[in-house]
Write a protein that binds this DNA or RNA. Sequence first.
DNA 1: CTTTAATAAAGAATTTATTCTTTATTTGTT
DNA 2: AACAAATAAAGAATAAATTCTTTATTAAAG
Lengths: 219, 219
Amino acid sequence: MEETGKYKKGRQAPEPTLKRLPGYLYYLEQVREDGILNISAPTIGKDLSCDPTQVVKDLAFTGVKGKPRVGYNVYELIHSLEEYMGHNQVNEAFLIGAGNLGSALMAYQQEQALGLRIIAAFDIDKKKIGENIGGVHILEYSKLFSLSGRLNVKIAILTTPNQAAQEVAEDLINCGIKAIWNFTSVNLNLPEGIIVQNTSIGSYAAVLLRRLNDAGNNL
Amino acid sequence: MEETGKYKKGRQAPEPTLKRLPGYLYYLEQVREDGILNISAPTIGKDLSCDPTQVVKDLAFTGVKGKPRVGYNVYELIHSLEEYMGHNQVNEAFLIGAGNLGSALMAYQQEQALGLRIIAAFDIDKKKIGENIGGVHILEYSKLFSLSGRLNVKIAILTTPNQAAQEVAEDLINCGIKAIWNFTSVNLNLPEGIIVQNTSIGSYAAVLLRRLNDAGNNL
DNA sequence: CTTTAATAAAGAATTTATTCTTTATTTGTT
DNA sequence: AACAAATAAAGAATAAATTCTTTATTAAAG
Ligand SMILES: NC(=O)c1ccc[n+]([C@@H]2O[C@H](COP(=O)([O-])OP(=O)(O)OC[C@H]3O[C@@H](n4cnc5c(N)ncnc54)[C@H](O)[C@@H]3O)[C@@H](O)[C@H]2O)c1
Ligand SMILES: NC(=O)c1ccc[n+]([C@@H]2O[C@H](COP(=O)([O-])OP(=O)(O)OC[C@H]3O[C@@H](n4cnc5c(N)ncnc54)[C@H](O)[C@@H]3O)[C@@H](O)[C@H]2O)c1
């Protein structure tokens, strides 16, 4: 029978779900290391302090199937999550601005599966050129233009100081970059169609502070 | 007239709103630097690429009042946001694990108003003890216990490696810490009432990758 | 072989957040 | 002084996300 609109399958996971998936993945890798073969949504929910039906619904978006009385196969689940998040394809990225945060991210990508691979970093600081952090070489910024011509990199991680962000972002677009993971506070002004993923850790601080104040008022 | 339930004032901003507030604050500080005295929600919306009525609703939670045909007074608005987010009170924090990310955060707090002040960092690595990063002294981890007895610090930023996270978190609770800003991937298991703010940058990567894939399919 | 308990999956209801609409206020203009 | 335009604010409608409920499937126990 033909699929009607109402019952169309394979709807895209909503953003809140998508943001939870990396958390499941890390957790499941730990579970796998413990030699556990099957795991149920109620168990996941308990360990991650979240609603078990939400776990079921979240995981269902990846297409994985669980079995009643058994749960999910841990390997299948990990594979399904990685597949869904696009970790199996190669997602190469440049990093611009190898300072405090940039260096941290280069170190981080080694241990943690972010789903993308930083293949080169660029900086204008002569002292940093030539360094290797987390397996990533730091190159002179001007090399960005020639290198991007040869490689087909679509993603850039922007960790320059705020005042350089807009200008660097424009350069990146000229180099064929389609998506910018923006860690600066600047609201980049770029052509239609360019993906800008703003990333504000200040948001988390705001939530933390309120929760703390709320708790304090109940004492 | 007495306030009925339906019209109760001062309802707490929902979390999505709260997470947007730091973005407004940074933007408005730039606006202020440009010498602009008043700003309207439509202008903010255009600059930040978001819905102007959402801007109005978000800002209303801080208690600020705007004027038709004029907009908001930039100074008032900044003050109101800072007040609402608790930036005026002293929010002292310890940082545990002065590695790549910890160092980046120490450098960051100087320039950016996160609403909290890191007053000391702790590490077990002898090479790091004594260093000063972003105005923060790095102390021997064991000093945490004596120091927390004298000071009344409620917040800790956890940036140790994953495998140390649970143990360190337990130490922190014993030192009187009430809220942990957790940057590790570990799902901490702590007593009721302790606030744990998990912070996953992997979530942003997941969203970025999907947006890029979605865009790619439309070519 | 039947029954029972656990659980995934699907669907409904509720809650929450965003967007749209209307109203009222304020300033500048004629 | 009356009028027009811009805009904040309040309210209504829509959309989205979460939580609750029911159903059906499976494996284990009797
Ligand atoms: N440090 C953090 O924890 C943190 C957290 C969130 C966001 N941020 C933001 O990330 C950005 C970087 O922060 P940071 O602490 O790493 O700063 P940083 O000064 O340590 O690093 C910036 C790097 O960019 C390089 N750079 C400057 N101009 C450049 C240009 N035109 N082209 C290429 N490289 C250039 C500098 O040489 C430096 O190495 C800032 O916008 C900051 O607000 C930082
Ligand atoms: N680097 C990043 O960009 C990034 C981003 C997000 C999350 N994280 C997470 O943040 C954590 C830290 O990452 P990092 O890259 O800074 O690692 P890192 O190894 O550079 O830093 C960890 C620091 O903690 C110290 N440490 C180890 N055990 C300790 C203990 N018991 N008590 C006190 N200090 C101790 C180490 O000496 C080191 O200085 C990890 O869990 C990582 O997954 C990192």
